[in-house]
Amino acid sequence: MSNVTTHKKVRATGRGVLLLIFSLGFLFPFIWMLLVSLRNRVDILDPGNIFAPLTLINYETLFAAGDIFPYFINSAIIAVVNTVFSLVVGTFAAYGFARYNWKKREDRAFFILSQRFLPAMAVVIPFFLMATFVHLLDTVWLLAICYTLFNVPFTVWMMRGFIEDIPFELEEAAFVDGCNRMQTLRQVVFPLVLPGMVATAIFCIINSWNEFVFANFLSVVHAKTVPTSVMMYLSVSGVKWGEMTATGVLAAIPVLVFAVSVQKHMIRGMTFGAVKG
């Protein structure tokens, strides 16, 4: 074996080991959450007891009480409605920004993107008052609307990049063939930006699925989402670690399944249209 290949092998192994270490680091809080969710309360506060008996009691308690199901249903409705809406509206706007040129374009683009950066803490009280005024308080629709505040700008931003990367000639060709703008959009643009849309969708879903501040203040009882369930577990008589972590595990699963199943699109999409591929 030559020196060069040995050297290469060593380096490859080194990279593997480094990646392994990083992966374990990123993994370990999840593993710990999983472990805590599988333990009895007395053992949770004793990290040394690695061989503490595992139990499904926390999940059983969770399912028996059933309080958590509506939270999951609400979260799912909000995530889906908001994501679909943001993608449709956002992609249209992105097309406008990518394909038209007008004087105030960059100012408008900045205005939209800047919404993504509004600190939730700063706007949640006025939102509450507005929602009361229009009788939307404590509905999933209100949260679905609120989440457009960060998901639409994000979508516009991402999709603008993807659309700008599509050579305009392709669209021109379609025009020549007699397509109007809408047909071109549907038949030429959408198929090409689909991977980008998938990547965008994942982040929209993660953002709405995990959002806490709005959900907490703008829901009373009927629109509560999974992240706000934490409030139920922070009890005066101690944190209900078991149920909380069990909820955490259950909440992470759908996102993970979705993200991993579209991993290829996601990685491609994560170039944010910045690099032609």
Binding site: P29, I206, P227, V230, M244, A251
Partner: peptide
């Protein structure tokens, strides 16, 4: 490894 890296994003921050 890529899947693992999605984990911290997928975990609900309030619970994490």
């Amino acid at each position: 490894a890529v899947g693992i890296m999605i984990l911290p994003l997928a975990m609900t921050p309030s619970i994490a």
